[in-house]
Design a binder for these strands. Structure first.
Length: 559
RNA sequence: UGGGGCGUCGUCAAAUGGUUAAGACGCAGGGUUUUGGUCCCUGUAUUGGGGGUUCGAAUCCUCCCGCCCCAGCCA
């Protein structure tokens, strides 16, 4: 692609970045960061933030940092820092040696806080949390100044040092920025910048008993790292004046905070709290349940990083609230997997087929194409024999008008094998078909017709003796509502059929050799991958996504 | 009812006063096909509402309406 062909439409953030480069701001340097708090697992909403920050840095020859924003030891844990790093690497990003922790800067932040006090821009406040709230005012009424607001610099310095030294109990004092208790922006009403908190930190242990607050810490972290563009989600928009205030007061390197809308997806929820609720109430099997929008869940489900990044690229970046259609994500994973997933035959709901005129002591190898979309994927040999399984719903005793598959007297193709005709069926006492009797045409080996005759249907199949049993887990959307939050209680809208386990599946033997998570297409059905629950003797597959199903649509449109 | 932000196809989302208002997904129809898959083709909006400025407005002004965020010693 030449530069003239390049897509001209860029998002507003890239526009800002390009303008800054053009104008030589920060010497044309671009440096971004992704700053998760290590207090939970990453979801696809985080993937958007990661891609925005990291892709932009890459596109403009810049750098990106991974930084853990670990300023609140109450909620944080190393377990999360590990899972976060694993997920980001899985997405395909490499922060090289630029891994940072807010806690690495605690000393510098403390020094900056003393500077703020020195400048008369911060004070130690003895109000309780409750009293602070009372003084803050409301959305429509201004707040009142703290009685401690006009302490001398010396007293503030002394008190702040003693806070650090551990002389005061938790919660008894805070360091506050001295801004404006009447500001229409609540964030500017003398926000707390340090609190006393005796809680062991996962990295600094018990070295500190005071911890900086987000608004104070975050701009400093960005500044210290020389971040040029600090892209965050939109709820921080009215924190930006505070972000700027600290940096201006301290007169240090000043990054630009830019806000964008968070990602929402239909038929799921994205808040950490709500996802946690699903886990805690055993509504899902864990954070990596394949129905979860977490990166670990999507990974286990069989989503690829390429599909997720493609998706993020397609949804664009803007500031308005939106709910992206899950169908777009599904399109992206199908599109990716169609190109790369090798094909396999698997029968989910087996119906026995006897090929009457095929010798019972015979079997033969037939050549199957591994991926029609990728000739380099080659072919494989698959065993054919007298007794086979086909999909139960590929047979209709009294076929629907548009049904193209097997029915009494009709000839269809068994993919890559032979044309067969159904001549009889065996039923149980309830009248259910338990077995089909067919004949095959030996002239049609490979599924070709030397006489040029056409058949409408082509079915997948497995050989009864050669195939292996498997458990298959079919997933559907976790919620029945496009927007579960429109319900009084989103839990009520959980889809009872979001997980369907089927146990008597039969699968082509080579499936046993697949690695955990390796994507495959079960022909005519969908994309699947082996679940970590698989053992030596038991194959377990997750359905990542079904193939598009126009047959289902034909039936639906008829109703 | 204070402040901040946002309203363009069913869903995302371009358009930066002059285009028939991009594109993608979805949906509908058709073609190809040894996967009812893939692929290909066709169709699918006058921009929240009213006034105004202008030769010309989704873009500018104005009034209204609607949605989101903010009253943690969370991030």
């Amino acid at each position: 692609m030449t530069s003239a062909d390049k897509e001209k439409n860029i998002d507003f953030i890239r526009e800002i970045v390009e303008r800054d480069i053009r104008e030589g701001k920060h010497d044309g340097r671009v440096h971004t960061r992704f700053p998760p708090e290590p207090n939970g697992y990453l979801h696809i909403g985080h993937a958007k933030a990661i891609c925005i920050n990291f892709d932009i840095a890459e596109e403009y020859d810049g750098l990106y940092n991974l930084r853990f924003d670990d300023t609140n030891p109450v909620k944080e844990d190393v377990e999360y820092v590990e899972s976060i790093m694993r997920d980001i690497r899985w997405l395909g990003f490499d922060w090289e040696d630029r891994l940072y922790y807010a806690s690495d800067y605690f000393d510098r932040m403390y020094i900056y806080a003393e500077q703020l006090i020195d400048k008369g821009a911060a004070y130690v406040c003895d109000l309780s949390a409750e009293e602070v709230r009372e003084h803050r005012g409301t959305l429509t009424e201004p707040g009142r100044n703290s009685p401690w607001r006009n302490r001398s610099i010396e007293e503030n310095l002394d008190l702040f040092r003693r806070m650090k030294a551990g002389e005061f109990p938790d919660g008894t004092r805070t360091l506050r920025a001295k801004i404006d208790m009447a500001s229409p922006n609540m964030n500017m009403r003398d926000p707390a910048i340090y609190r006393i908190l005796r809680k062991s930190h996962h990295r600094t242990g018990d070295r500190w008993c005071i911890y900086p607050m987000y608004d104070y810490a975050h701009c400093l972290e960005d500044s210290i790292e020389g971040i040029t563009h600090s892209c965050c989600s939109i709820e921080f928009e009215d924190h930006r004046p505070l972000y700027d205030w600290f940096l201006d007061r301290l007169d240090i390197f000043h990054p630009q905070q830019i806000e964008f809308a968070r990602l929402n997806l239909t038929y799921t929820v994205m808040s950490k709290r709500k996802l946690a609720m699903l886990v805690e109430n055993d509504l899902v099997s864990g954070w990596d349940d394949p129905r979860m929008p977490t990166l670990s869940g999507l990974r286990r489900r069989g989503y690829t990083p390429e599909a997720i990044r493609d998706f993020i690229g397609r949804i664009g970046i803007a500031k308005r609230d939106s709910i992206v259609d899950m169908a777009l994500l599904e399109y992206c994973i199908r599109d990716d997997l169609n190109r790369r997933a090798p094909r396999l035959m698997a029968v989910l709901d087996p119906l026995k087929v006897i090929i009457k005129n095929y010798p019972s002591d015979k079997s033969e190898e037939l050549e199957f194409i591994n991926n029609p979309e990728d000739s380099s994927a080659g072919s494989r040999m698959v065993q054919f024999s007298r007794e086979l399984y086909i999909e139960r719903n590929d047979f209709q005793e009294e076929p629907h008008r548009k049904f193209k598959r097997l029915s009494p007297g009709r000839e269809v193709r068994l993919r890559y094998a032979y044309l067969v005709t159904c001549v009889d069926s065996v039923k149980d006492e309830n009248g259910n078909v338990t077995e089909l009797i067919c004949t095959y045409d030996p002239e049609t080996r490979g599924g070709n017709t030397p006489d040029g005759r056409k058949v409408k249907g082509t079915l997948h199949w497995v050989s009864a003796v050669h195939s292996k049993p498997a458990e298959v887990r079919l997933y559907d959307r976790l919620f029945t509502l496009e927007n579960p939050l429109e319900s009084d209680d989103f839990i009520d809208t959980i889809n009872d059929e979001s997980l369907m386990v089927i146990n008597r599946c039969r699968i082509e033997p080579s499936a046993a050799d697949l690695a955990i998570g390796e994507p495959v297409q079960f022909e005519r059905q969908g994309y699947f991958c082996k679940d970590p629950d698989s053992t030596e003797g038991k194959l377990v597959f997750n359905r990542t996504i079904s193939l598009r199903d126009t047959w289902k649509r034909i039936l639906k449109n008829q109703k």
